[in-house]
Simulated scan of single mutants.
Amino acid sequence: MRVLPISLSLTLAATLSAQAGPPQLILQVAKFRNLDQVQKGGEVEISVVVPTQPLTYRQRAPKSFQSSAVVDLDILKADGTSAWHETVTLKPPVLSDTTIAIKNPLSFLKRVTVPDGTYTLRGRIRDQYKSANGETTVEQSLVIAAPTAPTFSDLVFLAKPAAKAGAESVFNRGGYLLTRAAGGFYGRGTENLYFYTELNAVPAGRSVRLHYHLSAEDGTAADADAPLVTTQGGRPTPIVGQLPLGPLPAGHFTLTIEARDAATKKVLATQSQGGQRSLTEYAPAGAAVPR
């Protein structure tokens, strides 16, 4: 998963002074292989976070204010033609006082299946109540390709432990219900880091040992080993886990996962993902289905 270059500490803990600037849009992308063996390609999960602090609030009634924003999402092929497009309208909750500092970010999740290839993800947000400086566009390149060797999918950070689930929805994957941590942000009072990934292209029935390494920018680090995992046949092997955040200071952190063949001790695959921790700010709610 790769984050567009917008500071999480700035956007997720934005102050009211940010209202003078343009709207903000945080896109995170997690790429997985398609679980449908007949339909080749990849599944792209797009996590969208919109801080509501910079949005313009209009009065709807006495002591009733609300903002509104439109998010356009596009996946473009290498030749510039559209592979997928969707528009989502966001309406944050009504506020009785726009000086209230607690305006929680809004987040939602989209899952798109595309053939292998090279693409561009484009996101555009428009503040519907602001004509000047009321639009922001961000782009990110995407490469979808079948693995030729053992590899992890992108790492996904979760707001709470993955739970077994049978029903299919945009929040389910690999038999688990996954509640994404918006923007990879862990806030005040959070004691554990939860995560999900998948191990691809390892022969069925292979025993794999997983090692986790969690580190902060000041050098603080912690290591842990997970129980042996037996790989599945014909499909990715789901990996779920959790680690205590206790020793980590506030700021940026990195989780690295390493998979070794239990018999030969050979490293099969590694994957890393960065997140953000705050000891003072509360984390936003998990992603919801947009209206």
Results as ranks from 00 to 15, higher is better:
Q59F: 04
L55T: 01
P51M: 06
V48M: 04
V70M: 09
S68P: 04
S64K: 12
A61D: 13
V50S: 01
I46W: 04
F65Y: 15
E43R: 09
G41K: 08
V49H: 09
E43G: 04
Q59N: 05
V49N: 06
S67D: 02
R58S: 06
F65V: 07
V70N: 09
E43N: 07
V48G: 07
V49S: 09
V50A: 01
R60N: 09
Y57Q: 08
T56W: 02
Q39F: 11
R58M: 14
T56D: 01
A61Q: 09
Y57W: 13
Q39W: 08
F65N: 07
K63D: 11
P54T: 07
V70H: 07
K63M: 07
G41Y: 12
Q37N: 14
V70T: 15
D36A: 13
T52S: 03
Q37D: 14
Q66C: 03
P51G: 10
P62Y: 05
T52Q: 02
E45G: 03
K40N: 13
N34L: 09
Y57E: 01
P54R: 08
V50L: 12
A61R: 10
K63E: 10
E43S: 10
Y57V: 05
A69W: 11
T56I: 02
R60H: 09
S47Q: 07
E43C: 10
S47Y: 06
P54K: 03
S67G: 10
P62G: 03
N34D: 14
R60F: 10
Y57P: 02
Q59E: 13
V71L: 04
F65Q: 03
G41P: 14
I46K: 00
N34P: 12
Q66N: 02
S64D: 08
A61M: 08
V71R: 00
A61C: 06
F65D: 05
Y57G: 06
V38R: 12
V71F: 12
Q59K: 06
L35G: 12
G41D: 11
D36S: 14
V70L: 14
V48E: 05
S64L: 10
G41H: 10
Y57S: 01
D36F: 11
E45W: 14
V44W: 04
T56K: 04
Q39H: 05
V48P: 08
K40P: 13
V38P: 02
Q66I: 10
S47M: 08
L55F: 03
V44G: 04
P62I: 04
E45M: 14
